[in-house]
Design a binder for these strands. Structure first.
Lengths: 286, 286
DNA sequence: ATCAATTTGGAATATTTATTTCGAATTTGA
DNA sequence: TCAAATTCGAAATAAATATTCCAAATTGAT
């Protein structure tokens, strides 16, 4: 009995388990690859997103090679096939957005009091993850537009009750520093409706509300909308009842530990809004 | 010849051709959807990345529904099936990561335009750095002690004016959630001195104050100290005038961009205090 | 409570997509 | 230039994934 002489294809023992490792390996092995495989290597390094989303046939066509060549490529780097390699690219993409939620929750909710030692680090890390997520989930153009909307308004009203009140006060204080005509709707003395009744179409309203959404905030928002005012909202889900009739809606995922929402991310977004406003103002004055 | 009576499933004429449009449509139609479809709507809006990368079976399993339900959902929004809808999510991701890559790359090129472009990343990064600093500059034992001090107090007073007011309101709200007898000294109606005069030796005061230190805060702190109350302060320097007669002092360096202090770090510290308090309470009750 | 309409779950089926195979083309080394 | 080895392409096959269909469950109106 005789075996076929194994083809020359070098199959490296696969210890590659992340996109970064693969990227490194491909660059290192590049020179030892055949012509087609070099072509593929280049395409792979330059279009990681396409690899993650497309099919073998699609990638092959775009890269100008045959599907089988892609599988050879995958095997050359120790994967069982294209599918296995593709998973790495998908994980990489997922990390940029969705999986942050896991990171936040991991070791916080799950471990209970068990992971006692590093609780401060964990708390900070949860906030860091939220902030990192914010930086690539918020559309800067929308922030710019919202800022312009505020600077174009006659008066700016801010509402955020209970849990959201700190954000509202931050905005009210900061906008006040910028010589905005700002009014915080704090419902002091039960005069919320009265305070809100002066909102006109020339004004803007910034509303902040998280689950469970304060009824008063919704009412004010509705009132402002029907008065024709521009509405900017910060909330926690696109499905939030207050996101409905908003001109600009921002969704923020704040880290939550033992049911205490952090607000650090919301505050950062508020800060983003304020600094943009400040810069736009500075440019206009030139 | 007769046709089956068409099922009730409302098939909207599909003019949806982008993720944003779909997201909007889902939110608008949400209330008219059936139970399962609502469930899916929520999952879809909150996990767009998963939709883009996963298979129907995978998504269905994670969302806790049947694959067929996902196809019904897709058809309800005018797609021929899940696959067609999924393409929108993939395009969205492709765009996102492309623009993210651009932004990052432009930031690496250096130069003035670069610093303009990546301003959101920079803002977030500034906050991240502050948080990372916090996690190894704050002594966890002091936080624990401060938390014990609060839980042992009869009543808890919180003061933080102007720039620090958001932190004070956050603490007041969160401590209230823990059934602390908490009172926010907000100076409403000019009655700050009156509010503060009820502080006794059995009480605790949390004071937050940053440069330039509000005179009223200092006065209240002095008053509380002479009344024999325990004082916890959050400030920006160990040399701060309010750090003098404090039982526990935390110094926090918040990120500052264009003279707008972030407060994210202060908020994180406040959160640390609150969660510790919550956990101590939970342990005591066992 | 009963019936019709609608919604749902799960298996059966159709379709798409990945992988293998093998002969042809290309490269390599003398 | 020729033979041996390697690489490649296209069709065949295998695997996976999406979609359909229908019975069961739920809902809502009378």
């Amino acid at each position: 009995m005789s075996w076929n002489v194994s083809p020359k294809t070098i199959v490296m023992s696969n210890n590659i388990s992340s996109y970064e490792q693969l990227s490194k390996a491909v660059r290192e092995e590049y020179n030892s690859l055949s012509k087609r495989l070099k072509l593929i290597a280049r395409y792979v390094l330059e279009n990681p997103t396409a690899i993650a989303l497309d099919t073998v046939a699609g990638v092959a066509s775009n890269a100008g090679v045959q599907p089988s060549a892609l599988i050879r490529f995958s095997k050359a780097f120790g994967f069982s096939g294209f599918t296995e390699m593709q998973k790495l690219f998908q994980e990489h993409i997922a990390q940029q957005s969705a999986s942050y939620k896991e990171r936040v929750n991991r070791g916080l909710d799950g471990g209970e009091i068990a992971s006692e030692e590093g609780w401060l680090e964990q708390l900070c890390q949860a906030n860091v993850s939220s902030l990192e997520h914010l930086s690539h989930s918020v559309n800067v153009d929308v922030v710019e537009s919202a800022a312009r909307c505020i600077s174009g308004a006659d008066k700016v009203f801010v509402i955020g009750l209970r849990r959201s009140f700190p954000i509202a006060t931050y905005l009210a204080y900061s906008l006040g520093q910028l010589d905005c005509h700002v009014q915080l709707l704090d419902g002091a003395g039960g005069m919320l409706a009265g305070q809100a009744s002066s909102i006109t179409e020339k004004d803007a309203l910034i509303a902040i509300s998280y689950h469970s959404y304060a009824e008063e905030t919704q009412r004010v928002l509705t009132q402002a909308k029907s008065a024709g005012a521009s509405c900017i909202v910060m909330t926690d889900s696109p499905l939030s009842p207050i996101a409905d009739n908003a001109d600009f809606a921002f969704t923020v995922h704040d880290a939550e530990v033992h049911s205490f929402r952090s607000l650090a991310t919301s505050l950062c977004l508020a800060q983003a809004l304020v600094t943009r406003l400040a810069i736009q103002g500075a440019i206009e004055q030139d």
